[in-house]
């Protein structure tokens, strides 16, 4: 490969990655990777940062992290923009590893290197990922602030509808957290419509799942089922267990015990297969709630104890609140108080 051509190849590689053209990106990756020993340090710094992003779009987060470690060897000669890209990529990986606190800390480092000269797409995606992290941190107000900033940047360019749809999903879920169901529904349906238009099946499944979450929360399980069944048909492993859980719950609530048992059994078995103890407890507790009431109390107490042990505060709050209500209805106020207090952690 001609040394003079490397900058052009790196540029084309970046474009292929941004446009999600995986085959073209892979082809350029193979060409560039063969000549790595010929590159000077500036080229290597740029190469490893782009390589990290390439591994991200093909779903290899571990390899993406390794590329970042190699890029760090050249940190002393990084430009401001390269510093930004390093921290942004790290924050992005932390998000997908569900290490939200580390994600925020790293994205804050990236923010120091942001410049107004960056493209709207880059600025928008920074705010989008930050909005997504804050959503999962349960800090709705900041999630909404960053989602609004993302919209400002994405709405200027037609090709960014995909990212705009993702932002609409975040806005919808923020409004759901604030119990503003009508606005939540509006944003989620807009996202659904965009996903259909651009034929993005992965994000379409996410939009259907989120609408399912909305209608389950609103106490409309029959409506939720329609969207959750569509979400399941999208065959996205990433969200499969969440969809099966909500489907089982909605089927039981609409007196479709046969379908509920089917969704529960599939979800419970897949939790075992994937060694996912958290969802295994969630499915087990759901089953005791509807089918095996004799063991409801003991299993729910054990489940909440498990969530406490692994410090899963969200589930401790969620399940303790429901168990406290159960004891209140049975006029067992001492037990009720114990779980109401746990629901406040």
């Amino acid at each position: 490969m001609e040394h003079l051509g490397i900058a052009d190849h790196l540029h084309n590689w970046t474009l292929s990655i941004q446009l999600d053209k995986k085959e073209a990106a892979h082809s350029i990756y193979e060409k560039l990777n063969k000549h790595i020993v010929e590159y000077d340090t500036e080229t290597l710094a740029a190469y490893f940062l782009i390589e990290s992003r390439y591994h991200t779009i093909v779903g290899n987060l571990q390899e993406s992290r390794q590329s970042l470690a190699k890029a760090r060897e050249y940190e002393e000669i990084f430009t401001e923009l390269q510093h930004y890209k390093l921290f942004f990529a790290e924050g992005f990986i932390y998000y997908y590893e569900k290490q939200y606190q580390d994600a925020i800390a790293t994205l804050e480092k990236a923010e120091k290197y942001m410049s107004p000269s960056m493209e709207p797409a880059e600025i928008g995606e920074f705010h989008l990922i930050k909005a997504m992290v804050y959503y999962f941190l349960d800090i709705t107000s900041l999630s909404a602030v960053h989602a609004a900033k993302a919209v400002e940047n994405f709405k200027t360019l037609e090709p960014l509808s995909f990212l705009l749809a993702r932002t609409e999903l975040v806005l919808g879920m923020n409004h759901l957290d604030m119990s503003d169901y009508e606005t939540a529904e509006k944003h989620l349906l807009t996202a659904l419509s965009t996903c259909k238009k651009i034929k993005n099946h992965s994000l379409l499944a996410s939009a259907n799942l989120n609408l399912g979450v909305l209608y389950v929360t609103r106490g409309l399980p029959a409506t939720a089922i329609r969207y959750l069944e569509d979400a399941l048909a999208g065959k996205q492993k990433r969200i499969e267990l969440n969809v099966l859980f909500l489907l089982a719950d909605s089927y039981w609530k609409t007196n479709q015990a046969g379908k509920a048992m089917q969704a529960y059994s599939e979800g419970f078995q897949k939790s075992l297969d994937r060694d996912n103890t958290k969802t295994k407890w969630e499915f087990a507790m759901l089953h005791k709630k509807y089918e095996d009431r004799d063991n409801f109390e003991i299993v729910w107490k054990e489940g909440i104890e498990y969530f406490r042990r692994v410090n899963d505060k969200y589930n401790v709050r969620t399940y303790s609140k429901e168990l406290a209500q159960y004891y209140t209805d049975k006029k067992q106020y001492e037990h009720a108080t114990t779980y109401y207090l746990l629901a406040l952690i």
Partner: peptide, 17 residues
């Protein structure tokens, strides 16, 4: 100890389509 909500915002692809 963080929220593990049931919602989702898509796979690990952030580029535009």
């Amino acid at each position: 100890g963080l929220a593990d909500k049931k919602g989702d915002f898509g796979s690990a692809i952030l580029s535009f389509n």
